[in-house]
Amino acid sequence: MPDASANFDQTILPHLDAAYNLARWLIGNERDAEDVTQEACLRAFKFFDGFRGGDARAWLLTIVRRSAWTWLRSNRRHEEAVEFDEELHGGIDVSASPEVSLIRAGDVDAVRQAIATLPAVFREVLVLRELEDCSYKEIADIAGVPIGTVMSRLTRARRQLQAALSTQPQSGGLS
């Protein structure tokens, strides 16, 4: 009914940027990210009756994340799609993080490239925390993992990103 779609427009669509941002970072290209976002939104509309109020953004992000992972599994290299295994990849590495000379904040492309080198499980916690400003609890709900897992992934994601940023060739050069 028209009411339902109007209600959906008001409640859910304000969070479309967040949804697209997550999909775009997970998928890696515009066209597929748009397809995945649209499909997730339609799915959200179908489930909308089941939405009991509360945090609409987290609810939408949960659905988008699931759609994005489904896409990754069927479209990407196998290793990318395997959900991160803490055991396999070890626990928190407490060795000193690399001394970083961070890329200038203005160099957006370089930062994007560095984030893109992270495994998808790391990208998603990093994007949710740093770009969407989600709390650990929200990230845990969206990704369907315990808060402890969110913490260890975030730690590793930041370490890897720091490393990637420090080894990237500086555009502009320092002479």
């Binding site: 479309l16 509309f45 930062v111």
Partner: peptide, 30 residues
């Protein structure tokens, strides 16, 4: 690191065409 990531340009924004297309698709589904 946070300072670097605070750059608003890092966050992708949904294109207007996507917004319209979703609105239309939802209305049709409704």
């Amino acid at each position: 690191l946070r300072g670097t990531l605070q750059n608003a340009e890092l966050r992708f924004r949904a294109p207007a065409s996507l917004r319209q297309s979703i609105s239309a698709a939802v209305e049709q589904a409704a």
